[in-house]
Design a protein around this nucleic acid. Structure first.
Lengths: 200, 200
DNA sequence: GCCTACACTGACCGATCGGTCAGTAACCTG
DNA sequence: CAGGTTACTGACCGATCGGTCAGTGTAGGC
């Protein structure tokens, strides 16, 4: 909806993106309820009014913050579901999924350990649906207790590991080290689960 | 500190304990920052002033809420460290630790995914120390990246599984099912780690 | 009966919360 | 130079926050 040539970058998108990224960091570290619009505005060098100019409300800001990651996750899932069920397909999926976790660790952290208190929000409902269909893809109806535990330990454990590693007293792991170790551990966790991918 | 016969139960301890348990539930589900003293008071049927009569501040209430679990964890750790390092000792410890997680799941949930935002608090510092010494007991200095990942996935995954299972759309698992599955999965996760318990 | 200690409460405090609104300076279009 | 849009802001709103304080009722010890 605009005819201007190109250099709209300065203000057209950057402020919004900057606010989203700062808000995400704050939400993930202090919690959604524990973060005020004023804090976000201060950290970004804007006024609180500016934040509410770009986003209709605090909740809308959170939605905008989490939605792109959910889009990505949806694509990854679609790709997995459309493949034939095999060990190699599952391995490829695990690698893809762990890359997703690495890139979107803060968003996943938000979902994993604030999802409970944000249940009313649309993006959280969507995330729950995606995770549920992921679970179904990996093992039909999540039959045994052990399968459920394997799945949620892998998901919650990876999410925790990625967001809490900064709290370790030792030096943080590089992304490459983390990815390799996570692929090993998560594959091991999911290996005993029977493969039965299914659409919808 | 009291000479009265016996029935001091009605008011001497119950109000405090009741407030602690209600506060813990709220803190765990909505977050410490997201829970107001008014909400806790309402849920308990007291006034906000009463909450502040029993606990000097909101932070003091959180400390009182988490401290008993930390005491228990300290005892479990001491017991493990004082045993000779062996596979059977580790298995016994894992079982003991998972019982601890089951009983204190909300407190562990608080530590695991709000520890970051509560770093200033004494009880959180203590919990971090305990976890660190637990990690040291299991594998010296946490040498390899994979060992670190195994440890934190087991801890964070178990904590997530226990607190998020209520969000599953299916019926929740019984404690016995959960314990058995967790023991299997966590033992499997920690098995490749070399045992080198050490004091302090 | 008197007195203290205890459990508890309502009124109130300054600060901050999310959110609204009336601007304003800069810029593009005609 | 008008006119409109865009990005942004300060002043302000009612509500709520954590916390203080001056009580009030009551039970037990003397």
């Amino acid at each position: 909806m605009q005819t201007s040539p190109a250099p709209e970058t300065s203000s057209r998108q950057t402020a919004r993106e900057e606010l989203k990224s700062i808000a995400l960091r704050q939400f993930a570290s202090v919690g959604f309820a524990g973060t005020s619009l004023q804090q976000i505005a201060d950290a970004a060098g804007y006024s609180k009014s500016s934040v509410l100019y770009h986003f209709a409300s605090k909740e809308a800001l959170l939605e905008a913050t989490l939605t792109p990651a959910m889009d990505t996750l949806g694509e990854i899932l679609d790709r997995f579901v459309s493949r034939a069920p095999s060990r190699s397909a599952q391995d490829a999926f695990v690698a893809e999924f762990i890359d997703f976790l690495l890139v979107n660790r803060l968003q996943v952290h938000m979902f994993v350990n604030q999802g409970q208190s944000l249940q009313g929000m649309a993006v959280i409902g969507r995330a729950n649906g995606l995770i549920e269909s992921l679970a179904s893809s990996l093992c039909g109806e999540m039959r045994t207790a052990e399968e459920r535990v394997r799945f949620s330990v892998a998901l919650g454990g990876a999410a925790y590991m990625l967001s809490a590693s900064e709290m370790w007293s030792t030096a943080p792991l590089s992304d490459d080290e983390t990815r390799a170790a996570l692929v090993t551990v998560v594959s091991e966790l999911l290996a005993p689960m029977q493969l039965r991918p299914m659409a919808s």
